[in-house]
């Protein structure tokens, strides 16, 4: 589904990603872990199409198509979704209004008519129940005054609404208490199928107890320096990242 080869990316001439190779197939869950500043969020943003990041070398293909020249919205239309580490507050745009616009713009890009209002309401009701989101919450301004947990739950709600092929969860677990973590992970698991894939970016093993990865990668200094199965995450939890750094630097 997603194939990244020798990806180099920089922001304001500062190289952050220095040769990433990663392949994610349909039905898989990949975890990307690594110390602060290793380039995890940059990788997520580059896949989603943030313009400040310049791809200087390498390829990103999504379902066989080179996407690295595509705008963020075009990638979204093809089924790429990024759950933000810091969801942006947008005063004056309600959650519902935002979702309706996002869904109808995506449909428009696919040559489909707007979703009938009745179906939209039904979909919103269904997905908000999945994330245990209160109805009143949906008429509030997007992310404005939301608690950390509410913001993250709202991200997964949007994911549920948009049904992406590839979901990248950028530190979705940060700022979540154990109940919110369970709700969020539960939501993600319910949306998982053999046709879609998830990349979980996290510092901690905690989320991976709920969303169990098929592969774990360690990102350090802009490269994937180690890959393994889910047991690698446990090892990192126990031993920290120093041994990895030592291995790399040796």
């Amino acid at each position: 589904m997603l194939k990244i080869e020798n990806l180099h990316a920089s922001v304001e001439d500062k190289a952050i990603l220095r040769g990433i190779n990663l392949e994610v197939k349909a039905g898989e869950v990949h975890a990307i872990m690594g110390p602060n500043g290793s380039g995890k969020s940059t990788l997520a943003s580059v896949i989603a199409g943030k313009e400040e990041y310049e791809v200087t070398e390498g390829d990103i293909t999504f379902n066989g198509e080179d996407i690295h020249e595509l705008a963020a919205e075009e990638r979204a239309h093809k089924g790429v979704f990024l759950s933000f580490q810091y969801p942006v507050e947008i005063p004056g745009v309600s959650v519902t209004n935002f979702m309706k616009t996002a869904i109808n713009e995506t449909r428009k890009a696919k040559g489909l008519e707007d979703m009938p209002a009745k179906d939209m309401l039904k979909l919103i009701r269904e997905k908000s129940e999945l994330l245990e989101i209160d109805r009143k919450f949906l008429s509030r301004s997007l992310n404005e005054g939301f608690s950390g947990g509410e913001k993250k739950r709202n991200e997964i709600f949007q994911m549920a609404m948009l049904e992406p092929k590839l979901a990248i969860l950028d530190e979705t677990d940060s700022g979540l208490d154990i109940d919110a973590l369970r709700i969020v992970a539960n939501g993600v698991n319910k949306l998982k199928s053999k046709d879609n894939a998830v990349i979980v970016i996290t510092h901690y093993q905690r989320l991976l107890d709920y969303i169990v990865p098929d592969f774990v990668h360690v990102l350090y200094n802009g490269r994937i320096v180690k890959s393994g199965g889910k047991e690698l995450a446990h090892e990192l939890e126990e031993k920290g990242y120093d041994w990895i750094k030592e291995e790399v630097n040796a």
Partner: peptide, 20 residues
């Protein structure tokens, strides 16, 4: 970027922000 990553094209995202 947030809005565009949800599939809202640049022009529409701008318009929505300005309307808001």
């Amino acid at each position: 970027f947030y809005m565009r990553s949800r599939g809202i094209p640049e022009k529409e995202a701008k318009a929505l922000l300005m309307y808001a």
